[in-house]
Design a protein around this nucleic acid. Structure first.
Length: 149
DNA sequence: GCCAACGTTGGC
DNA sequence: GCCAACGTTGGC
């Protein structure tokens, strides 16, 4: 069992949207490192749902992987904003998973606050700020869960 | 809206 | 394989 952090812009698709839908595919990831992490996800894994490009940005809550990686067909769709002309059913460059809403944190955790927690200082969230899918170490995950509870 | 960081593309 | 140009992410 692994823990993850996944980013989305709340203006596009926020945790409230996932709550409403209950289950959603996590599509549109177009970065190889992030894709590799998606492919490493297992059913049952918990993910911190992080709001990026928001005011403020930060950790909003949790969701759970309910379907392991499968081809992200939005890449094949010319009308999709995630269309990738180099991809197709034969190539399958990009993957997605399905996630299910788990819960909204009782307290939203802004990035500025997370930054000030010494125990979290070595999170990829800070050193690899542009990575939209990233693993989260168990002790980091537990601490964030406790802070948000 | 600006800009720094950084990933990708493509010429050589 | 290098590297400059370019595009994107995401904080502020």
């Amino acid at each position: 069992m692994q823990n993850w952090l996944i980013k989305s812009e709340p203006d596009v698709f926020g945790l409230a949207d996932l709550k409403r839908k209950r289950v959603s595919s996590w599509d549109g990831v177009r970065n190889y490192q992030a894709r590799n992490f998606l492919r490493a996800m297992a059913v049952g894994d918990l993910c911190i749902f992080y709001h990026s490009n928001a005011e403020p940005s930060g950790a909003a809550g949790l969701c759970r992987v309910v379907k392991a990686a499968y081809p992200d067909h939005t890449a094949w769709d010319p009308s999709s904003p995630y269309h990738d002309p180099k991809d197709g059913p034969q190539v399958q460059r990009w993957s997605m998973v399905d996630v299910r809403f788990e819960r909204v944190f009782a307290r939203f955790l802004p990035l500025a606050e997370l930054r000030e927690v010494p125990e979290l200082a070595d999170m990829l969230l800070f050193s690899r700020s542009r990575l939209s899918v990233q693993p989260v170490e168990e002790h980091h995950f537990r601490l964030i869960e406790a802070l948000g509870a």
